[in-house]
Design a protein around this nucleic acid. Structure first.
Lengths: 161, 161
DNA sequence: GCGATAAAGTTTCAATCGTAACTATTTCAC
DNA sequence: GTGAAATAGTTACGATTGAAACTTTATCGC
């Protein structure tokens, strides 16, 4: 491919998919964050932790892997939840640097009120889609994830050292 | 619809679309931000301004509308670009509170180097998709935007005052 | 075992972002 | 015209976030 006929497509911000994706994603995040905040007093990282720990006790490390959040973010969210009595730390005999985090009774209770609300919110925002469209969306997100991770990895390597 | 058979679907974070959307969108944004930063020394808001102003001179107000960015963000990005000599302010005779912003020669030059790179990056990340999938993606984003904006508006109203 | 290196989590710090307060100008009611 | 309310843009401030440094415990080579 020569450099002759490249600029076939013009660049318009509102047709640039990365921009569209970022903008729409932020709209959704803001709407959801506001709901969690006002109804349950939770921030997004906190709610994510609750959602994942509801599946079973886990160390922060495992939470990092499951939520794709930074360990600092996880640390802060966990501290906040423990402080509010929603989460408790149990000694991890296999490794005393870490603890198993699990929901308290209050935490489980909260989770059971949050989960349906979360699914309802999702339905409100994505509800107009039929099964096929949703599947396409999920597949596309998976593939974009692959491609973007690859791009990021390429950058890390090519960059400095 | 009664409250009987609601929890048909279980909540799993990695199947929760708002989470997936946020995560993937951030991956893409980070990859792109890093490229703009390392190649052109621009942050995302700055590059967005350049992209839009390339279409013609404009006030910050109009930029806010076109980019969906906060006026503070636009103000800062514009100041940075003016400081780097990529943008210049021309008096707006119709309203002396604002200025018309336009690219300098250096700014136009930069734009012409950035635009193809941006499209190339987009192609790298979304390139595996066929025409039909891309169209579906765009349509879905449009509809999600509508739904999320509506949800946000609902919250603003229902909230306090 | 013992010292070096790595890993789990926390704390510190700097960057980024948006709300609120502020300045300057404009618009509108009268 | 004149004062009140609105608007364009900037500045100040608080919240959130991740990178880097740090502490504690584990692991690995010998």
């Amino acid at each position: 491919m020569g450099s002759m006929n490249e600029p076939l497509r013009k660049l318009r911000l509102d047709e640039f998919i990365p921009y569209r994706l970022s903008y729409v994603s932020n709209l959704v995040s803001d709407a959801i964050a506001e709901t969690y905040r006002s109804l349950f007093g939770l921030r997004i990282p906190e709610w994510r932790l609750v959602a994942v720990i509801a599946e079973g006790p886990m160390t922060q490390q495992q939470l990092c892997a499951r939520t794709h959040m930074d360990k600092v973010t996880v640390s802060r969210a966990a501290a906040a939840l423990v402080g509010r009595g929603l989460l408790e730390r149990r000694a991890n005999d296999a490794d005393r640097r870490s603890h198993h985090l699990q929901l308290t009774a209050a935490g489980t209770d909260l989770y059971e009120r949050i989960a349906p609300k979360a699914l309802q919110l999702e339905a409100e925002i994505f509800g107009g889609f039929d099964e096929h469209e949703l599947k396409t969306m999920e597949r596309l997100l998976d593939r974009v994830e692959q491609a973007a991770s690859a791009a990021a990895r390429r950058q890390e390597q090519g960059e400095d050292k």
